[in-house]
Design a protein around this nucleic acid. Structure first.
Lengths: 196, 196
DNA sequence: GGCTGACTTGACATTGTGTAAAGTTGACAT
DNA sequence: ATGTCAACTTTACACAATGTCAAGTCAGCC
């Protein structure tokens, strides 16, 4: 746990992550600085503003949690159905890791266009994962008729959004496992043929 | 359009509504005051703070748009399925009316516990509508097995949440009509028996 | 005439972000 | 040993937006 060996920059990122993930309401620049053991001003020597710090924090988390490796499984799935389920599991189980930072960034969206861009970029990447799964389903002839690939992608995307996870897990009290189970089931029913 | 006859309080509420609904980013107290044709301070003669003003604005909208009448249709539906569809149409078509104020209130949630309470109260009312529809389905034996009534309610509730509407209509560009169509379809597939 | 309620004007406290400038400190090179 | 450099500290301030406070205007009304 000794953060002695870590660079100041890394200590700032880690502090920001910890504080945001701890769910302790609002996290100010001064809180982060204090947690990192430096002055508030010193944070600005490493990050130009709050938005950049938050964005750098998501990148830091991606690195530590190795998001690429998590998503690789879904890319190598044999069938469209398997790909859909693997993607839901991969992204759905990643949401809790970034939830704190996601909240802070989403709260900033309105005011800071740069933060908006950064978060939108990440969400666009998720949408591309959804689109790839939908394309795989379509290739297998397993996409519901009456649903365009774009609409199917949008439906899956919204179901895998952070606010939906937040409401089901945080507000309704679902376990993470049940969230994955029912999200998978709902997505299958919404996208695959049959049903009614 | 003459707002001459309206009381100052009503003019404030109407101005707040207009500005929030116009989607013009951040709406300050001074903006609202200017739109209402009074000084910023005068607003505080009618509402103690921003949060109370926003909450009062939602109540004003409810009154003008007669939300009770809209939801009445779903309550008198004969079957569970009809009730489900009527409720989705009623609430889903009400979301665009309150979207602007909803955004402002949701943005306040973190900082203002009172605003949080007020918004949560409204959302709880929506959840009760969802629960009533699910109960009606269950009574008809039309609730998917393996889904508890609570889980079914949560699924419907999250699908009818403002963020989901926002993403599909605002971000993805769905028409309101298509949103209602596909939300209805998805809810049927998620909640009713059969499917796979 | 004088009171009252609604509103205005202007000043100020507060909170958090971000900028700016000057000083400290320790490591490292020569 | 001395000088330099980077990292960091301290202090101060500008800024936006909310909210408070006090004094003043003005119309209507008893």
């Amino acid at each position: 746990m000794s953060s002695e060996a870590l660079s100041t920059r890394t200590r700032i990122l880690k502090s920001a992550w910890d504080l945001l993930e701890s769910g302790a309401g609002k996290t100010r620049m001064s809180d982060i600085a204090k947690a990192a053991g430096i002055s508030r001003q010193a944070v600005y020597l490493h990050f130009p503003n709050r938005a950049e710090l938050l964005i750098a924090t998501t990148r830091y988390i991606d690195e530590v949690k190795d998001v690429d490796a998590r998503l690789a499984a879904s890319r190598s799935a044999p069938s469209g159905e398997a790909r859909l389920e693997a993607f839901i599991a991969a992204w759905g189980n990643y949401i809790p890791e970034i939830y704190g930072v996601a909240c802070a960034l989403m709260a900033l969206e309105d005011s800071d266009p740069e933060a908006r861009l950064a978060w939108d970029g990440r969400m666009t990447a998720v949408r591309e994962g959804c689109a790839a799964a939908v394309t795989a389903l379509q290739r297998d002839g397993m996409l519901q008729e009456g649903l365009s690939p774009e609409e199917a992608t949008d439906l899956l995307w919204v179901q895998l959004s952070v606010p939906v996870w937040e409401q089901l897990v945080k507000t309704c009290g679902w376990s993470q496992a049940r969230y994955i189970e029912l999200t998978t089931q709902t997505a299958r029913r919404a996208l695959l043929p049959g049903g009614r």
